[in-house]
């Protein structure tokens, strides 16, 4: 099934929305109002967007510390996300979680772990639950190249293959884990591109091309829905900004500025926008409208967050156990 014009416009809109939200957070971070470590998604928007465009509302996603893009692409409410970053009671986690612990149960986002690799078995377990309940829901797990260093990936994939679980593992290889390049941590290609073809659909794709991400993921999701088991999709991309915080907080000297520049030139948002313009799918007035809508939504979300109440000492003991 090829993408309709509307679907393409929708993907571009999602990518722009994620990008502008990240930019606004970046530009306001030094005001110290968002007292929570932020991991920005700039440069990786095509992945969350392309993947989530293949999913239904009741499909599950599980992500990691760098989760703003996944949360938004899956349908997450921006106001609730911003309020969480401002640690307010109106935040998606009511101020108990912060930027690394977003949740949106309504859209299948059952909570985000900031322990690298921690979400991978949990996403696998969601797949197990769907299978046991004979639901045709799919579980998608987003994780980085750093998480692909962890044993949980190998243990989870083995189990998913063994049980034929409806799980799609999306590895976002953005070249870095904090200040360590992927190449110094991985011995060549991930092993899941090599073996177990009959049990695992595996692909390595350009993670900056939302349509490639969409098409490959769609295959994986359809397989999973048909009960044909798990997939492993490695998306090559790049973390344009620092590991955490805003640009000025990124330590200098650990990566080559020319490398960053070359990836900036491959910006997934700009590239997709140009492509759709060239195809005549979007024009300048559409883009101006979308930008204006997004800017207005961001203003509203930031205002909402700032004006929302802070939790107080009286709230401290809430939520330890579910009554």
């Amino acid at each position: 099934m090829s993408l309709t014009k509307d679907a393409k416009r929708g993907m571009l809109r999602t990518m722009l929305r994620i990008r502008r939200v990240q930019e606004r957070i970046e530009s306001e971070y030094l005001k110290d109002e968002m007292k929570t470590p932020v991991h920005l998604y700039i440069g990786q928007e095509a992945i969350a967007t392309g993947v989530c465009a293949t999913l239904r509302k009741d499909d599950a996603i599980n992500s990691n510390h760098r989760s703003h893009g996944h949360y938004l692409a899956k349908g997450g409410d921006l106001k609730a996300m911003m309020a969480e970053l401002f640690c307010r009671t109106t935040g998606c986690s009511k101020g108990y979680g912060g930027s690394m612990h977003l949740v949106d149960v309504e859209h299948g986002n059952l909570g985000t772990s900031a322990i690298v690799g921690g979400g991978i078995p949990i996403g696998t377990g969601l797949g197990l639950a769907f299978q046991m309940q004979k639901l045709d829901r799919v579980s998608v797990v987003f994780f980085g190249d750093g998480a692909a260093d962890e044993g949980t990936l190998y243990e989870s994939l083995n189990f998913a293959m063994l049980k034929n679980l409806p799980v799609v593992y999306v590895m976002e290889n953005n070249g870095w884990a904090v200040c360590s390049p992927t190449a110094t941590r991985h011995c060549g290609d991930n092993v899941f591109h090599k073996g177990a073809q009959d049990r695992l659909f595996s692909a390595k794709i350009d993670g900056n091309d939302p349509e490639a991400v969409y098409e490959t993921t769609l295959k994986a999701v359809e397989r999973a829905r048909r009960g044909e088991g798990p997939s492993f999709i490695e998306c090559t991309t790049y973390r344009i900004l620092g590991h955490a915080g805003c640009v000025s907080q990124d330590p200098k000297g650990y990566r080559d500025p020319a490398e960053i520049e070359s990836w900036r030139e491959r910006c997934p948002v700009c590239a997709y926008q140009s492509k759709l313009q060239a195809e005549g799918v979007v024009n300048a007035s559409f883009l101006a409208d979308v930008e204006a809508e997004i800017a207005a939504e961001i203003d509203v979300a930031f205002d909402f967050a700032r004006q929302s109440p802070l939790p107080t000492a009286a709230d401290l003991h809430k939520y330890l156990f579910c009554e």
Partner: peptide, 16 residues
């Protein structure tokens, strides 16, 4: 510290 996971929000941290 109280027998609770650490909360994120700074007002909660202060109480914690």
């Amino acid at each position: 510290n109280p027998d609770l996971p650490t909360p994120a929000g700074y007002t909660l941290e202060q109480a914690y």
